[in-house]
Simulated scan of single mutants.
Amino acid sequence: MPNIAIELGKLSGNLGVTAAYGEQQDLDGVKVLPVAAAWSGFGGGSDEAGNGGGGGGGFSLPVGAYVRRGSEFRFAPNPVTLILVLTPFVCVAGRALGYVVKSLKKTRR
């Protein structure tokens, strides 16, 4: 029986960008290289009787793509991911700004 941990390790290397976007694409001289953040985890075990089991899972978040046109190279973010990441930041920054304004008002009295 092959070592399952090694086989799962080889498989998990392809879960990120390939699962979210696919491979690099060449479109009319424009190269598009996808970017994704990926997490994965696997586990397994057995008892004294030899009964065993395992499982795993993963998550891949498409972040954007690097686009190359000739000598120009730029990053094009995924707008949905950008909104999901910035929403909590804007909420926390707005709340912190409210506390700053409130404390400034108290010190002027």
Rank of each mutant, 00 (worst) to 15 (best):
residue 85 V to F: 11
residue 58 G to D: 02
residue 67 V to N: 04
residue 106 K to F: 01
residue 44 G to H: 06
residue 92 V to D: 00
residue 67 V to G: 12
residue 31 K to C: 01
residue 63 V to Y: 02
residue 89 F to K: 11
residue 7 E to S: 11
residue 14 N to A: 14
residue 68 R to N: 13
residue 90 V to L: 12
residue 19 A to T: 01
residue 54 G to R: 10
residue 75 F to I: 02
residue 43 G to I: 04
residue 108 R to K: 04
residue 9 G to P: 11
residue 37 A to P: 05
residue 108 R to V: 05
residue 51 N to L: 14
residue 54 G to W: 09
residue 20 A to I: 00
residue 13 G to E: 15
residue 4 I to N: 13
residue 27 L to E: 12
residue 86 L to Q: 06
residue 5 A to S: 14
residue 72 E to K: 10
residue 98 G to F: 05
residue 31 K to D: 01
residue 47 D to N: 15
residue 64 G to W: 03
residue 88 P to R: 03
residue 67 V to F: 10
residue 60 S to T: 15
residue 86 L to A: 09
residue 97 L to F: 08
residue 28 D to K: 08
residue 7 E to G: 13
residue 107 T to S: 05
residue 49 A to Q: 13
residue 52 G to M: 08
residue 14 N to T: 11
residue 100 V to H: 11
residue 41 G to E: 11
residue 42 F to M: 06
residue 29 G to D: 04
residue 17 V to C: 09
residue 61 L to K: 01
residue 57 G to L: 02
residue 61 L to V: 07
residue 49 A to M: 00
residue 18 T to E: 05
residue 62 P to N: 10
residue 34 P to K: 05
residue 77 P to I: 00
residue 34 P to V: 03
residue 28 D to V: 04
residue 105 K to G: 02
residue 76 A to Y: 04
residue 4 I to K: 12
residue 8 L to A: 14
residue 102 K to W: 11
residue 89 F to M: 06
residue 14 N to W: 03
residue 41 G to N: 12
residue 33 L to K: 08
residue 106 K to V: 10
residue 82 L to C: 00
residue 40 S to R: 09
residue 83 I to V: 13
residue 7 E to M: 15
residue 15 L to A: 05
residue 1 M to I: 14
residue 100 V to A: 02
residue 101 V to K: 15
residue 93 A to K: 02
residue 10 K to R: 14
residue 80 V to G: 10
residue 103 S to E: 10
residue 93 A to W: 03
residue 76 A to P: 02
residue 11 L to P: 01
residue 25 Q to T: 14
residue 40 S to N: 15
residue 105 K to C: 00
residue 69 R to M: 14
residue 76 A to L: 13
residue 18 T to I: 13
residue 11 L to N: 09
residue 52 G to Y: 14
residue 42 F to R: 07
residue 54 G to Q: 09
residue 19 A to S: 07
residue 70 G to Q: 12
residue 19 A to L: 01
residue 86 L to G: 06
residue 59 F to W: 12
residue 2 P to R: 12
residue 87 T to I: 04
residue 78 N to S: 07
residue 25 Q to F: 01
residue 28 D to A: 08
residue 104 L to D: 07
residue 72 E to L: 13
residue 1 M to W: 10
